[in-house]
Write a protein that binds this DNA or RNA. Structure first.
Length: 420
DNA sequence: TCTGGGGTCCTAGGACCC
DNA sequence: TCTGGGGTCCTAGGACCC
């Protein structure tokens, strides 16, 4: 059987962890730039706040209801996530981290009672060891486990646990799951299925295979098999290597000058190179893209991207930054209000597989050595202590983060201090 | 003033090859 | 009148996920 363990309102729960006075209070976490709502406590949900709602449109509402507002603190959430994943390993050697707040577990137990007990145990353990509430769905396939989890949350069943191990329980699940609550059905597929009068997961199983194949592609066929209890989604204990690494961010304010955008891009390019080194990869291709704010209909719009091949695979900050700036030279145009710039590292190879270029005069060992020292210093002291001159100091592009909580678990200077 | 960021997979269509 | 067929590679775009 497969269990899906999902942290409830994860970011909101993380903010509460070190601030118990927020228990029982409405609380929201905002996206980068304090843009829109990406996590809500149950109390905030009860007040009708929707996911993705822009913060600036609800300022008055937030104040009126004394809703606590947090900027997103991914350093904190990442660190709490690690604790949750560690704690889950107690219950199974096979744990697949699916996202920052979810994991699949393979369980070698089959009876419904035993599964119920085990789920309760897991839930209590994460609660007492990490302090984060979770919901658990158990079923024969990942897709059904996702559904069981959602069902548990929605119906508030038995402490957020739902076990669908027997055919009759699976049937209950299928009949009570709306199609848009199925893992793999988004708004577009939902529209098409509703037109066919397919409203639940059970309805979906009545559709002929060729129709599924044509309209929902092979991914849809796989999903339907999973609903039938046939395992069709691979198990991945070890995360497969990433195919691309992307750093893209909206600016705190609109930018028009190339110099300002250059500064932002150089910083993102350096972050991208750091990520490449962390996962021991090198990129053969760099993509740069730039875009205006599509929400501002009064502005002229512009979106463009360009690929810059690297003659030799690299994860050297200065090489990645240089390629990124070369790309910006090609796609930048005067006279637009730009909102966002980004860089993507593509065609990744392991850093042990470096192919030397025929006319390659670059000293790879020297570069690797320099980057190692660079990373060590930045890890040891304040993050980003040493930087490249082109990364600049104007910081006009900087994110808005008006309500950022401390990095309680990752920065010794921000550890919670208890008075006596 | 103000609307996230980072991924994956699939398909269709064009270019190119023999 | 009537203009092949099959393969590969690349890209853009669309759908999905959290």
């Amino acid at each position: 059987m497969i269990a899906l363990v999902d942290c409830n309102n994860f970011y909101a729960s993380c903010e509460r962890l070190f601030n118990p006075s927020l228990e029982g209070k409405p609380l929201v976490v905002l996206s980068n730039n304090d843009g829109c709502v990406i996590s809500r406590s149950n109390e905030a949900k009860a007040l009708g706040i929707r996911m993705g709602e822009p913060a600036f449109m609800m300022d008055a509402f937030l104040q009126l209801h004394n809703i606590y507002v947090f900027s997103s603190n991914y350093t904190l959430y990442g660190s709490i996530s690690n604790r949750v994943m560690q704690a889950l390993h107690v219950f199974s050697p096979q744990v697949e981290t699916y996202s920052i707040d979810e994991a699949f577990l393979q369980l070698q137990v089959s009876s419904a009672e035993a599964l119920d007990q085990l789920a309760a145990l897991i839930s209590n353990h994460i609660g007492s060891q990490v302090g984060i509430p979770v919901s658990i769905g158990i079923a024969p396939t990942k897709t059904l486990a996702k559904m069981a989890n959602r069902y548990a949350k929605k119906e508030k069943t038995n402490k957020g646990i739902f076990v669908a191990s027997s055919p009759s329980q699976v049937q209950t699940l299928l009949q009570n799951t709306a199609i848009d609550d199925i893992w793999g059905i988004g708004s577009q597929h939902q529209k098409r299925l509703t037109q066919q009068n397919i409203l639940t997961a059970a309805d979906l199983l009545k559709l002929p295979e060729p129709w599924i194949r044509k309209n929902l592609t092979v991914t849809g066929l796989r999903m339907v098999n999973e609903l039938k209890g046939i395992v069709s989604v691979d198990w991945e204990d070890i995360p497969p290597p990433k195919k691309g690494i992307c750093i893209a961010r909206s600016f705190g304010q609109l930018l028009t000058k190339k110099e300002d955008i250059k500064e932002a891009l150089a910083n993102y390019a350096n972050d991208c190179a750091v990520k490449l080194r962390q996962q021991r990869s090198q990129a053969c291709m760099i993509q740069v893209f730039i875009q205006t704010n599509t929400h501002r209909t009064q502005d002229k719009q512009y979106f463009r991207s360009v690929n810059i091949p690297l003659p030799v695979a690299s994860n050297d900050s200065s090489t990645i930054i240089a390629a990124a700036l070369k790309g910006l030279d090609i796609i930048y145009r005067k006279g637009f209000n730009f909102k966002k710039v980004g860089i993507m590292a593509l065609e990744l190879v392991a850093d042990t597989e470096t192919q030397m270029g025929m006319f390659d005069l670059y000293d790879h060992q020297k570069s690797a050595g320099l980057m190692k020292v660079f990373d060590q210093i930045n890890n040891r002291y304040e993050k980003g202590k040493i930087r490249f001159a082109v990364q600049g100091y104007s910081k006009k592009w900087k994110l808005r983060q008006h309500n950022l909580s401390p990095c309680y678990t990752t920065d010794i200077r921000q550890v919670l201090c208890i008075k006596n």
